[in-house]
Simulated assay, not measured.
Amino acid sequence: MERRDFLKTMAITGAAASSSTALFSGNAEAAGTLDIGEVKSVKIDVLSETSWFSNDNLKKSMLDYGGASTNQYTIPWDADNAGGYSSLITVTTLDGKDHKILMDSGWSNTWMDYVYEMHGIPRMLRNGEIEFMVLTHWHLDHYWGIESTLKHNPKIKIYAPATHYPEDMALLRDKAHHKATDKEGKQVPICKNDVPHTGELVLCSTEGEKGEGVYKPLPGMAIKLFDVPILLRVRGENVLYFNVKDKGIVTVTGCCHPGILSLFSEARRTFKDYKPYGCYGGLHLTLFETWDPKFDDVIRGVKSFGLQKVACNHCTGWLWAEKAAEAGIPIVKGTDKYKSYKRQSAVAKATNVFLTNGDTVVF
Rank of each mutant, 00 (worst) to 15 (best):
L218T: 11
L218G: 06
A15L: 01
G317F: 05
D273Q: 11
E29G: 11
T181C: 05
D359M: 02
Y341P: 01
P154K: 02
I121M: 03
S41C: 02
L7E: 14
G84L: 04
F264L: 09
T136G: 04
D5V: 09
C204S: 13
I12H: 06
V252L: 11
I190C: 08
W291E: 08
S108R: 02
W77C: 05
K349M: 11
A11M: 11
A31S: 09
S25Q: 15
S25W: 11
H139V: 09
D56N: 10
T198S: 08
Y338Q: 11
S265G: 12
G84D: 06
Y65F: 07
G236Q: 14
E2N: 14
G281P: 07
M112F: 14
S262A: 09
C191Q: 04
T181Q: 15
N71H: 13
E200T: 08
M221R: 01
G67V: 04
L7P: 01
P76V: 08
T93P: 05
C315V: 15
L319C: 11
K224P: 12
P217H: 01
D78R: 09
I331R: 03
G83C: 07
P161V: 06
H99V: 14
L225Y: 01
I12K: 07
M1L: 04
I12C: 06
I156C: 04
V228R: 13
M169N: 06
E147I: 03
V188H: 04
T149I: 00
G32A: 05
Q187V: 09
P189M: 06
V202H: 06
A348F: 00
K245M: 09
Y85E: 08
D336H: 00
P258H: 01
C204H: 01
G83V: 00
T335M: 00
W77P: 11
K339D: 12
A160T: 07
A180N: 09
K275P: 07
N57S: 15
T149G: 02
R126F: 00
H257W: 09
L47D: 01
S20T: 10
G306A: 15
G185Y: 10
